[in-house]
Design a protein around this nucleic acid. Structure first.
Lengths: 256, 256
DNA sequence: GTTCTTAAGTGGTCATACCAGTTGACCATA
DNA sequence: TATGGTCAACTGGTATGACCACTTAAGAAC
């Protein structure tokens, strides 16, 4: 039997989640004033410390602005938020996936992936090259086992990103991977063609070993285009289903 | 006369800053145990609430992991941190600029910029198109005034990013812009050639209006390459200065 | 040795008091 | 009218002490 660890949540975490959800979902518009800390205590039935811890976190996340003596207001997270918000934005109130967010993630992946491969080919250390080779070998040993390939592909990119020696890419990748992780089961089939293309992963690993940045870039681009195309087809199909009229989702379309 | 607002800092902010600095600078290695909350109170001479608020924030930022009853440990922020850390990483202990971080930011800018232009050309609303046109007109009216051009260029990208209708790009851009803002004075000269190229901004705005995504992409790429090349020359020169041996900084080189 | 118990230490929660900054109404003065 | 002063009523910020919940490891019991 497979049991999951019990997930515990501190009070301040619960307060944070509730407020973050309200803000990110737009139930509290930018500029709106939050209730005072003491009022929140009453509404949420917790002590002030828990509320303050939550508010401080929201402030740091760029969701609210706290002013000593002057109240607390909601910010426009699209202007002040950071990438880690992606995983919060991915799901809608009803638990369905927000297609616009999913599309955004795939687009960013497609834009950064080739450049990650390029930089890795230029800068990778022997240790990185070896790791990539081992991962590809494992992929070749798991042809057909899609979930295993997905897992290996993620680890492949973990290594590739760290080999690119670009801290901005590493940090951005952390957020993208978090979001992608939430979509794993959904995407394993959609991205099947990309995941099964072990030859391309091999080609990237080889290009990195040779220091052939041009080749690494092109292979990576072609590889990611497979997945991107597949995703966009799915999105278009759902959008068509929900309301015909355009090839892209005009508003927040969803999929369960 | 130009007076700046007095900057105040709450105790928990001060605690947060001190700990974040220690972690990000590597003075506390990943896996190391933090002192207990009560110990930190004594060391920092503040009450426990302030310490807890700071620790909660560090936890959310992916810098530490708090375990109820089991202590608090430092995480590897390169694996768990988010993009907003960039602005913290930009400066070294001595207040000099970390060239590897600066290079990372410029590389990410160069990778995302053209795709932002592409998506904006595909999806921009008439309001966005008009904003871009107005900004370019202002640029043309300020030829030669480099600081003004820099300001307008930032606003140009603000609009372009929001027009791309990609939430991931918007959030990532927030962090990049924060980091870039810290470098404004330093970069205004280095990026002079890029900033003076108002024709390219005009071309992008026009391409967006026409919905010509291909043209928008190419012009944006060419535009950013000017700046990227300039930056890399400066970095190479400094690296050469500090210690000859390679065209890229081998370790954390710095510039005041 | 293995298992259980227990004490010490950790983070989590709570209540209360008071300090510090902001706001707006009101008033005095020029 | 307009400027500045005063004050009361908010707001968030800090402090303290107590207790609860959980983890860990040392020691006792088998």
């Amino acid at each position: 039997m497979s049991l999951k660890p019990i997930e515990r949540k501190s009070l301040s975490d619960a307060v944070f989640d509730q407020l973050q959800e309200a803000i990110v979902r737009g139930r509290m518009a930018p500029g709106a004033a939050l209730p005072s800390e003491r009022t929140l205590c009453e509404m949420l039935q917790v002590n002030r410390g828990a509320v303050r811890e939550a508010l401080k976190r929201l402030s740091q996340a760029g969701l609210i602005a706290i002013h000593h003596g002057g109240g607390t207001r909601v910010l426009d997270f699209k202007r002040t938020g950071s990438l880690h918000l992606l995983s919060q934005l991915l799901y809608t109130d009803e638990g369905t996936i927000n297609l616009r967010v999913a599309r955004s993630v795939m687009e960013m992946r497609a834009a950064l992936g080739p450049d990650v491969a390029r930089l890795c080919a230029r800068r990778a250390s022997p240790a990185i090259e070896r790791s990539l080779g081992e991962l590809v070998a494992e992929m070749e040993a798991h042809q057909g086992d899609l979930p295993a390939l997905q897992d290996l592909a993620i680890r492949f990119w973990d290594v590739l990103v760290s080999g690119a020696d670009n801290i901005a890419y590493e940090l951005a990748y952390n957020s993208l991977r978090d979001t992608y992780d939430d979509l794993r089961e959904v995407l394993v089939e959609v991205l099947g063609e990309e995941l099964r293309d072990v030859g391309s992963y091999r080609a990237i690993a080889d290009a990195v070993r040779r220091g052939d940045d041009l080749s690494a870039t092109h292979v990576a681009r072609a590889l990611m285009e497979k997945g991107t195309r597949a995703i966009f087809q799915v999105i278009a199909a759902i959008a068509e289903d929900a309301g015909p009229g355009g090839e892209t989702p005009e508003h927040d379309e969803e999929v369960s």
